[in-house]
Design a protein around this nucleic acid. Structure first.
Lengths: 162, 162
DNA sequence: TTGAAGTATCTCGATTTCAAGATAATATCA
DNA sequence: TGATATTATCTTGAAATCGAGATACTTCAA
């Protein structure tokens, strides 16, 4: 088995701290590093369209919610692992860019509806097409059976947290 | 198979954009979410010791490098996925906290040696012990064979990027 | 009806990170 | 030797995020 960056870290710990069983550090370290690499690759695709992963996430949540492409900040928050202050900032940016609009919610005036504007719709249509193509490229490093096995294990693991 | 958060996203896309094959989004979405959850759990352990993952990473790299526990910023950078400006900031914080010291490198005056002080050594000893125990807890959500399979696939996947 | 509790969003200040470029020292080689 | 390229670190300004708390509206119950 070819040694990777994480193997070298584990070997150092085993020399310096032989009292510790550092096995789990291998799995968790690889997961973290891989997520970072993949995240950067994903980001590149959005950058070409003038978006970021953060802004895409918001536009995508609106788009896939279906017509009339309107959700409250709270609805949007529920699908993302960010705070309400971060969502306010993201919507501010998208509003400034003319991609979404804040509408008053007639049914609850504490609330607000974030509406995808036609410009935002068109952009996210192109972005998601490019993004999915990029995701195909990024998962092609694994064979079909490896992807299936990985996905099944990740699903189980994720269930421990959600 | 129990439905998770990512399944709901995929179902929405399949309705709204049936032209797209969104399979890879499941795997990549789960990986990203899981990495975020795990990262937050890891962070908690460090917080109890007055550290962050960021500061621990630097102290840990120095500790596991072995005596005399000195590395240049460049050496440290090589093991972490951050920029040089970020490293300068991290070392500044650790220096201010009295955990490391910047020494001039007699062999190359462009360079600097970051030295682990006794206070930093003691702290990182306690931190890595707690961190590894926490990592055992966090990997125990999977069975032994699942951990082995996951680690093997992650290793292969990571090799595509390093 | 009214006061208290709950909910939805936004504000504020601090922190972390990055990209680009500045600074200073060393290496290369004509 | 001297000019140029390379290397190592730091500086700067901008951006994203967070936690805590403020604000405004709604719900509930007496």
């Amino acid at each position: 088995m070819e040694k990777d960056h994480v193997d070298r870290i584990l070997a150092q710990w085993r020399t310096e701290r032989p009292d510790l069983d550092v096995e789990p550090m291998g799995l968790l370290g690889r997961l973290a590093r891989l997520a970072t690499y993949l995240g950067r690759e994903v980001e590149k695709t959005f950058l070409e369209l003038g978006l970021t992963s953060a802004s895409f996430d918001v536009l995508a949540a609106l788009r896939r919610s279906g017509a009339p492409y309107r959700l409250s900040p709270g609805d949007l928050l529920a699908t993302m692992m960010i705070t309400s202050g971060t969502m306010t900032n993201r919507v501010d940016q998208l509003e400034k860019a003319g991609l979404v609009a804040r509408l008053t919610n007639p049914e609850d005036r504490r609330s607000v509806l974030i509406a995808l504007k036609p410009e935002g719709f068109d952009l996210v249509e192109r972005a998601v097409t490019a993004h999915v193509a990029n995701q195909h490229r990024l998962t092609a490093f694994l064979d079909l059976d490896e992807r299936a096995a990985l996905d099944a294990i990740l699903r189980k693991y994720l269930l421990a947290f959600e």
